[in-house]
């Protein structure tokens, strides 16, 4: 455990180090520009000559100006501390001053995205489980629906997002529901595929035992198949919830929404606010980690109580 933690920390530290190093060539053009305006000697002297050079060459020629690459207002690549500061300013600091639900707070935008994610996830999972039960119990559904469910995995369904939004908009549905439908669509298929596998997990012996008990199909489902499918269900729920989050974020893009994490990324890219994009990206990453982690926790507790895990 200790060794693992050490390796992970080393890798994370290496990534952060690389990130800082990358900031220098990425932001060098802007840094030399600022330095020249402040009256410092810059090689080469004119802006058009500098544009000919790549970021790395420029950084090598002006080693004294590296400091200027950090802490710019609109850097091409913000440094990790800038992103973390912005993240803290728009979440923790605002929450402490009692403005957690202000329009500038990432907590507010995360909540908008999270509500669509959770609603869609609930829809998708429920539908997925029902369809999986149908597929396991009906030979006809298994033969006809299952190939389509598998084929649909190979289709870039996220491309449907803009159309779903516009179509639902034209029949008067706005806001949460269209995003939730995209989320549901994305989380639906992992659950179907996983649950079909899970509901088929009980062996011949166990099914035969149920038959000797004269159990009905419903009883077999409720007392044998569903409990046996729990490990598979949780594995696909983890995939499903991160797919839901992606669906909710992408669902915010095509309509030019003004609320939600996807909208923050979109407005950030319109106005060149790179720090805002990066902080929204990290907020999304943290949200994904929390969601997957929560499901992992529920998984551990449930399986432990069911005696499936030591």
């Amino acid at each position: 455990m200790m060794r693992n933690l050490l390796s992970i920390l080393t890798v994370v530290a290496a990534i952060i180090g690389l990130w800082y190093a990358a900031c220098i060539p990425m932001n060098m053009h802007e840094a030399t520009q600022q330095a020249q305006r402040a009256g410092t000697e810059v090689t080469p002297a004119t802006a058009s000559e500098r544009l000919q050079l790549g970021g790395i060459a420029l950084a090598v020629k002006n080693p004294t100006l590296w400091r200027g690459s950090f802490g710019q207002d609109r850097p091409r690549l913000p440094s990790p501390d800038q992103v973390m500061t912005e993240l803290w300013n728009t979440t923790g600091a605002m929450a402490l001053s009692g403005r957690a639900m202000s329009k500038r707070s990432l907590v507010f935008h995360s909540w908008i995205t999270l509500s669509a994610t959770l609603l869609g996830f609930a829809f998708g999972t429920g539908l997925g489980i029902i369809l999986a039960v149908g597929i396991v119990h009906s030979r006809a559904m298994d033969m006809s629906v299952m190939p389509w469910a598998i084929a649909s995995q190979t289709i870039p369904i996220l491309a449907l997002a803009p159309m779903i939004i516009v179509v639902l908009n034209s029949i008067g549905l706005q806001g949460l529901i269209p995003k939730a439908i995209i989320s549901a669509y994305l989380s639906f298929f992992p659950v179907v595929v996983g649950m079909v596998k899970g509901l088929r997990a009980p062996g011949m012996m166990q099914l035969d035992l149920m038959r000797t008990y004269n159990a009905t199909q419903g009883q077999t489902l409720w007392k044998l198949r569903l409990p046996a499918s729990m490990p598979y269900l949780f594995a696909s729920l983890k995939i499903g919830i991160s797919a839901s989050l992606i669906g909710a974020i992408v669902g915010e893009l095509p309509t030019g929404a003004i609320r939600g994490l996807g909208a923050r990324m979109l407005t950030g890219s319109y106005y060149g606010q790179t720090i805002q994009i990066w902080s929204a990206l990290f907020a999304a990453a943290i949200l994904a980690a929390i969601l997957v982690g929560t499901i992992g926790l529920i998984q551990r507790r449930t399986l432990k109580r069911m005696g499936m895990q030591p």
């Binding site: 060794r3 992970i8 996807g262 990206l281 994904a288």
Partner: peptide, 23 residues
């Protein structure tokens, strides 16, 4: 490196990487 990179890789694989598109 394997012990370090595998958990990090697993974590990153679950993130909404699509968000890097605007950048």
């Amino acid at each position: 490196l394997q012990r370090g990179l595998l958990p990090v890789g697993n974590f990153v694989a679950a993130l909404p990487i699509i968000g890097t598109a605007p950048i």
